[in-house]
Simulated assay, not measured.
Amino acid sequence: MPESGSEGDSGAALAPETQRRLVRERYGAIATSDDGEDCCSSAACCDPAAAPGGEGTRERGELLGYSTDDLDSVEAGANLGLGCGNPKALASLAPGESVLDLGSGAGFDCFLAAQEVGEAGRVVGVDMTPEMVEQARANAAANESENVEFRLGEIEHLPVADGTVDVVISNCVVNLSPDEAQVFREAFRALRAGGRLAISDVVLTAPVPDDVRADPDSVAACVAGASTIGRLEELLADAGFEDVEVTPKDDSDRFVREWDDDRDPSAFLVSAAITARKPHAERGEGA
């Protein structure tokens, strides 16, 4: 029997290290692909029009909830047409805040966040794929984003000090982890007291077919690793978060159905806005 992830994960059928390797290989290929033709098996990112800066990428960005200003404000190369929402729209960022992006990819959401927090703010992106981090750093130079930094690391073991972040964002990445519970514990650790979590991700609306859950391509493509709304609420509460809200995006079937050429993932998967807050310091603790 295939080894499963640790207690509290999404129940993926692949061993954790196998799952991480598949995800790293997939997104490494996307980062180094010039035309999108070999990045993956799904039409969602392999249509040549979906190459960085391509018309398909822009249209997909609009479907995910990015405004025209968002799409125009970042230099080509950062928007790879990935994700399942717009975490910046959930985060209500303010000037001077510090932001941490889990699974930052080529940096698109980081650069949008940097515009919101301004020169007095700071944005750190963490990604486990070396090719993505390299591309993101090049994109930071192209965008002249001096308040953005990219670090190589796993979101289950964040290279970030305790209590140093005001906001944690992420875009369709937590479901790729073999241990979602650990991801949320790490996010909680990195947040300051009163800090908030604002992520876009996918949630289950029906059981994942067994052949999908065991399919390596589906696991690495945001299709097989999602949790139910109730499970996410439980994981976030167990990590210590309060004010937890998981809100499905009713029209996400418009892009979710494109993620698999052989089946329709929107039959059991939907994009959702996930928000939560770390409690303020208890009495006797520092502010």
Rank of each mutant, 00 (worst) to 15 (best):
L22F: 13
E119S: 14
L112D: 11
D9Q: 09
N79K: 00
G107C: 09
D215R: 08
P2K: 09
V124F: 05
A120R: 13
C110N: 14
A276E: 12
P207C: 06
A12W: 02
E62G: 12
D35Q: 05
G103D: 04
G36N: 12
D215I: 07
E146D: 15
V133N: 01
T68R: 15
C172F: 05
F241D: 09
N139G: 08
D250S: 15
L90K: 00
G230T: 14
G125Y: 04
R283L: 12
L152Q: 14
R277D: 08
R151C: 13
E154T: 13
V123D: 09
D264L: 00
E62N: 04
D179L: 10
H280P: 13
Y66I: 07
H280L: 13
L197N: 06
D166P: 08
G121H: 03
A221G: 04
V202M: 04
R185Y: 10
V117D: 04
D101R: 02
A226W: 06
A237I: 07
V148R: 01
T228L: 04
P216M: 05
S73A: 15
A49R: 14
R20P: 06
L22P: 02
G286M: 08
G195P: 03
V117I: 07
G107S: 06
D109A: 06
L152F: 07
N139A: 12
V167A: 01
E156K: 04
D250K: 07
D34C: 03
L90R: 02
S252L: 12
F268W: 14
S4E: 10
G286F: 11
K249Y: 02
C45P: 01
L102W: 05
T32H: 05
R24F: 00
G77C: 10
A138I: 10
V124C: 03
T205A: 05
A190H: 01
Q182C: 06
S92L: 10
R122G: 01
D35Y: 10
V74L: 06
R185K: 14
R185F: 06
T228K: 09
L22A: 09
A193S: 14
A15R: 10
T32W: 05
A239L: 00
D35N: 15
I155K: 03
D70H: 03
A12E: 01
R24V: 15
I274H: 02
E17A: 14
G53Y: 11
A193M: 08
D34H: 10
A31L: 11
A12F: 01
S6E: 14
P48T: 02
R185P: 07
E146W: 11
R122T: 10
S271N: 01
A51D: 07
L204H: 05
Q115E: 15
R283Q: 12
E245P: 08
A214R: 04
V244C: 02
V124L: 06
D260M: 07
D38G: 11
E233G: 15
L22K: 13
C40S: 15
S4Y: 13
V212H: 08
R231S: 14
S42R: 00
D201Q: 02
D261L: 13
A120F: 10
A272M: 08
E119D: 15
A15Q: 04
P95N: 06
E285D: 14
V223Q: 13
G81H: 13
D261H: 09
S67W: 11
L22C: 03
E59H: 12
M128R: 03
